[in-house]
């Protein structure tokens, strides 16, 4: 999501000379930590805020957190272009990332051992995947953790046995596979399927503010939710908010 924030920040600063938005990278946890520690005004996150974080914010800074949905994302499962596998079910994904399925032939692919690429544990994507796919069980210890989705893409694209996951916006140079819910048909991670909720791994990207957003932070948020801001979402490769979601946030 860093890349999205950077684009927003740059466009916002271009439109409002003299107003500066600083963007720091890292995972969703990084943003939350910065929000709690008071070093950031807004935190981008690809997962919902945890109760613990809410409490810490209240305790440390004595503020309620405010949540904004700012974009829609389909969490894609990547394989290298050379891998011909069509689709995977959620239970298959779980078994793969738990380290129980270790060969592609067990899920209908060629005879090749599976190499797991995961995200650093600060990432909201990591937390989302762990919750929704692994059902809160642990990733296999052999899963390599890389510090950004881009690194995952890069690694998967170079590794014939590789599999990774991450935001749809990043999926360049790799194939995304269709994902099937435990008891359903495989679905492609397209904008339509994400908007309708048919794709099992779609989620909202969020911005959290400590207390009521004010000043530049408020202007920035307004910009993000404006048509211009949502156009940037599309430009980067995520999906813009469906109209009703924008309304719900306000």
């Amino acid at each position: 999501m860093v890349i999205l924030a950077q684009n927003w920040a740059q466009a916002f600063m271009a439109a409002n000379p003299g107003k500066v938005i600083q963007v720091s990278g890292g995972g969703s946890g990084t943003g939350m930590a910065a929000l709690i520690n008071g070093t950031a005004d807004l935190a981008n996150a690809s997962r919902p805020i945890k109760d613990k974080e809410r409490k810490q914010l209240a305790k440390r800074r004595d503020v309620e957190v405010e949540e904004f949905r700012v974009a829609l994302d389909a969490l894609a499962v990547y394989v290298p272009a050379s891998n011909k596998i069509e689709s995977l079910t959620i239970p298959q994904l779980k078994s793969i990332f738990r380290g129980q399925t270790t060969n592609w032939k067990d899920v209908g692919g060629e005879d090749k051992s599976i190499v797991l690429y995961s995200r650093e544990n600060s990432s909201g994507t990591y937390a989302y995947f762990k919750e929704h796919v692994l059902e809160d069980e642990d990733f296999a210890a052999t899963a390599q953790t890389l510090p950004g989705t881009a690194a995952v893409i890069n690694a998967v694209s170079k590794d014939a046995g590789g599999i990774g996951y991450g935001g749809i916006a990043y999926a360049e140079g790799v194939r995304t596979v269709k994902v099937a819910p435990a008891d359903g048909e495989p679905v492609e991670p397209t904008m339509e399927n994400a908007t309708s909720g048919k794709y099992p791994l779609s989620r909202f990207l969020k911005i959290y503010s400590a207390g009521k957003a004010s000043g530049i932070a408020k202007e920035y948020l307004d910009y993000v939710l404006s048509d211009d801001g949502q156009k940037i979402v599309e430009g980067v490769g995520y999906y813009p908010l469906p109209k009703e979601a924008t309304a719900a946030a306000e």
Binding site: G26, M32, R60, N121, Q144, T145
Partner: peptide
């Protein structure tokens, strides 16, 4: 095999946790 060292763990994770 891959390894995760003490130093890399600190560098990768410290930025993301609350004080």
């Amino acid at each position: 095999t891959s390894v995760r060292t003490v130093t890399a763990t600190i560098a990768a994770e410290l930025g993301e946790v609350a004080q």
